[in-house]
Design a protein around this nucleic acid. Sequence first.
DNA 1: TAACTTTATGATAGCGCTATCATTCTTAAG
DNA 2: CTTAAGAATGATAGCGCTATCATAAAGTTA
Lengths: 397, 397
Amino acid sequence: MAKKNPSSHMTNIDNISNIGNINTITKTQTQRRMTIADVAQLADVGTMTVSRALNHPEMVSDALRQRILEAVETLGYIPNRVAGGLASGSGNAICVIVPTLNHPVYVPFLEGLYDILPAAGYQILLGTSEYLLEGEEHLVETFLGWQPIGMILAGVDHSPRTRAMLAQANVPVVEIMDLTAQPIDINVGFSHEAVGQAVGQFLLERGYQQIAYVGNRLERDTRGMRRLNGFSAALEGAAACKLVVLNRDLSSSIQAGGVLLGELLETYPQTEVAFFVNDDLAAGALFECQRRGIRVPHDFAIVGFNDQEIAAQVNPSLTSVSTQRLQMGQRAAELLLARLRGETLLANPIDTGFQIVERQSTCQQRSRDQKPKPRRAKNLNTVNPNTVLKEQQTHET
Amino acid sequence: MAKKNPSSHMTNIDNISNIGNINTITKTQTQRRMTIADVAQLADVGTMTVSRALNHPEMVSDALRQRILEAVETLGYIPNRVAGGLASGSGNAICVIVPTLNHPVYVPFLEGLYDILPAAGYQILLGTSEYLLEGEEHLVETFLGWQPIGMILAGVDHSPRTRAMLAQANVPVVEIMDLTAQPIDINVGFSHEAVGQAVGQFLLERGYQQIAYVGNRLERDTRGMRRLNGFSAALEGAAACKLVVLNRDLSSSIQAGGVLLGELLETYPQTEVAFFVNDDLAAGALFECQRRGIRVPHDFAIVGFNDQEIAAQVNPSLTSVSTQRLQMGQRAAELLLARLRGETLLANPIDTGFQIVERQSTCQQRSRDQKPKPRRAKNLNTVNPNTVLKEQQTHET
DNA sequence: TAACTTTATGATAGCGCTATCATTCTTAAG
DNA sequence: CTTAAGAATGATAGCGCTATCATAAAGTTA
């Protein structure tokens, strides 16, 4: 086959752009933005009446409200919330800090927030700390300048200055995705130690002994670290059991999973099962196994974390730990709103729990010498991946 | 094996929370937030000097600046940007509207923005339109109330009212992810028609005739629709060629890909290749093929869109169309900043182009009766997935 | 030394809005 | 018919900051 020209494409922009001389800086008329005074004048009322008509309609007579709304329409007036916030002494910004957007885990959580907070009239300011405490500190400082009425932080580890600023700002704070005995204020999450413990227990019960924990940038990933602690604690009891930890500095992703698997098998070829810090890594490891002809779970078993969609969909499907991410976001938002309304929070550190979802990438009973046939993966997609019991039944064939 | 108790875990919250009577509403001292006046008083200067010391340090003598910074430190003063923005007449918010966070495509794009804009001192307000023009309209209205100095919108389709509001607000606008002949202002993206065209051409060249386009919520997905238009146009020329379109209302995801594949094969069993609206769907279809024992690409070929990481990592790897998402975000941010600085933009509709990345899920030359052996997928992960030519060489064996 | 810059600082007046209180106009009660 | 109570509206004074101009202090030139 002849070498093809590289399939790179650019539309002919000339054809598209030579429509007119748009796009130079021809924003001519610097028309003043409409203010509440303009509306008041047009409707022949005072500014306060306009303000009321928009914010407390019930306080204004029908006739005037009608006239005012017409004026608003005519002028295309949009209230300046910055000024409004300043005048009323309380803005409506809620600041949210997550480690990264790059990891699909934070997305459902954010969705939970975006479902609720904007609908309640609040504006979300989002920032990413890149897993750095200093990043978080800097964001908190910046965000506080926006006079937020609430803050939502992923994680319970914060620099002292972060804590100091939050304390002084006197703003409701929700810490999320993790559980701590000393929350700053509100705390919604689950215990990562407990996850590690449970998975360790789970693997022991299934007869695994040569066990690996595979992470990525664990120095920064305090939650991954905490799972490791629980994991390691669970395995400590078992005498025959050996735990190795592999940790590298790759940008966490599917491909990294493949790379890490390669390293793991080179360094510790006797490893029977690996618990990965997330499902992307686990999936990457699985794909690499497929390429190398390693049978999963027979030759090598895989456990992921987060129960992302990919875990349920690959073949063999991945055993993982499901967490209530959307729910965490929603609960965080609800609790914050409740606090803003001045309500007393009954239970505070809220444990949203987790579930080990057992799928095909781990054996139900590891038998050291026997060679069980790989399981058929047929019709898995008709099984609702959200129901643990069903999925477990699948394995009971 | 005995039925295990469902592996659901909750940490004992009582153990954790009964540390003290934190967490009732015990935010006692409603200490007034520090203002610039407090700093001025402590440093024994005027408020303007404080303002200058913080915003234009070079205008203040060393001695005073020193004293002021100390006072700031002592009081833990954080400037109120809301008030500052109001006073100076120009805020520093930049509003960004994307269809969803749920789709990994928008994440690298947002990263591009978050790389550049906050570093330049701007605050990003992010909103999701959920693929609805009314959603976008509502967000634009809300956002304009924050007196943004710039807006970045995904897509070039907007409701008339959205356009009107943007026009009246007189704010620089960047439309992104798509290309149009009539941009509102700045436009960075690529042509989805051209993508469809190119993929159609690509498949024809490889000898495919029974071709499907598989989408999800195409009514809303104007860009997917536009790719379909280009695709269909490209196939129109070929006489023997038949195009079927499958479109459902599922929440786009890997699982949906499997479902859609099932439907496609039931309804049009003779289909040879399907072009999916995104890689998640394509991957889901691939996994379903694996479960059904359908050989890809021999029995059925798959083309995805977006060149997400999963496309390169699954086995067989997926042919897809790569787009410059991170770059689009960065360019958008840069162009917006340039415009804010008052610079003239040379080229305006900027076409960031695209590339068809040929991988293992499509045959290089479809031979209707011959049965080529499935290709080995070995060592694919040593190939840099960002380099098209290398990947194509892989196929030239 | 007078006249003129230059540099550093402060006083003042808003930015666009809303909280508050005063005023007017109704309506009900005595 | 008077008075009290309520409902609707407006005038005013800030919210915390910065633009602007005025002022004071210091340096420069002839």
